[in-house]
Lab assay of single mutants.
Amino acid sequence: IRVFLPNKQRTVVNVRNGMSLHDCLMKALKVRGLQPECCAVFRLLHEHKGKKARLDWNTDAASLIGEELQV
């Protein structure tokens, strides 16, 4: 999953079965001084340019493999 972060940063996270978005993104956020409780995560909708859909931090990350997200 490719993730666009604040301050023009980005990362790619690996996903294993059973992991939530929170689990996958925790380290990437922590390294940058961010906390999931203070952030929202969105899936970028490529079929609708510029649109995005808000996701819950408990979403199964395996269902988002190959997607691009924005925090």
Rank of each mutant, 00 (worst) to 15 (best):
V13P: 00
A53C: 10
E67Y: 05
V13E: 03
Q70W: 10
R10V: 15
I65T: 04
K30C: 12
L55H: 04
G18E: 07
H46P: 11
S63R: 07
E68C: 11
A53M: 14
L44A: 10
T59R: 03
Q70I: 11
V13C: 14
L55R: 00
F42C: 01
V15D: 00
R10S: 14
A62E: 14
V41M: 05
G33C: 03
L21T: 06
A62D: 06
G50V: 09
N17I: 07
S63M: 05
V3T: 00
H22I: 08
H46F: 05
H48G: 15
N58Y: 08
Q70D: 04
V71K: 00
G18R: 04
V12G: 02
N14A: 14
K8I: 02
E68K: 03
N58D: 13
V15L: 01
V41P: 02
C38P: 01
E68T: 14
N17K: 15
R54A: 15
L69R: 04
S20M: 02
V3D: 03
K27T: 12
H22N: 06
A40N: 14
I1T: 09
E68P: 02
K8P: 00
F4V: 14
V3C: 05
G18Q: 06
G66C: 03
Q9I: 11
K52V: 13
S63K: 12
N7I: 10
P6F: 01
H48E: 14
R2Y: 09
A53Q: 14
C38W: 07
L55M: 07
K49R: 11
L44Y: 07
V13Q: 01
R43E: 00
F42E: 06
I65G: 04
S63P: 09
R16D: 09
L44R: 10
A53S: 11
A53Y: 09
L21Q: 03
V41A: 07
P36K: 07
H48C: 12
E68G: 03
L55Q: 02
K27G: 15
N14M: 11
Q9T: 07
S20L: 03
G66L: 00
Q9Y: 02
G18P: 02
A40V: 13
V71H: 02
G50K: 07
C38N: 15
L44F: 10
K51M: 14
G33I: 03
V31T: 15
S20N: 10
K52Y: 14
K51Q: 14
L34Y: 08
G33L: 01
L5W: 13
N7V: 01
Q70A: 06
V12E: 15
L21V: 06
L21M: 01
L5N: 04
V31H: 08
L69A: 01
V41R: 02
Q35W: 05
R10W: 15
R10C: 15
L34R: 00
D56P: 11
V15Q: 00
K51R: 12
K51T: 12
L45S: 15
N58E: 10
K8C: 07
L34G: 01
V31S: 14
L25A: 01
K51C: 10
M26K: 14
E37Q: 05
L44W: 05
T11A: 12
K51S: 08
Q35M: 13
G50L: 09
D56S: 11
K30I: 12
L25S: 03
A61Q: 00
K27V: 08
T11P: 00
M26I: 13
I1W: 00
V71R: 02
L69G: 01
T11N: 03
A62T: 13
L69D: 05
C38R: 13
V3A: 00
C24A: 09
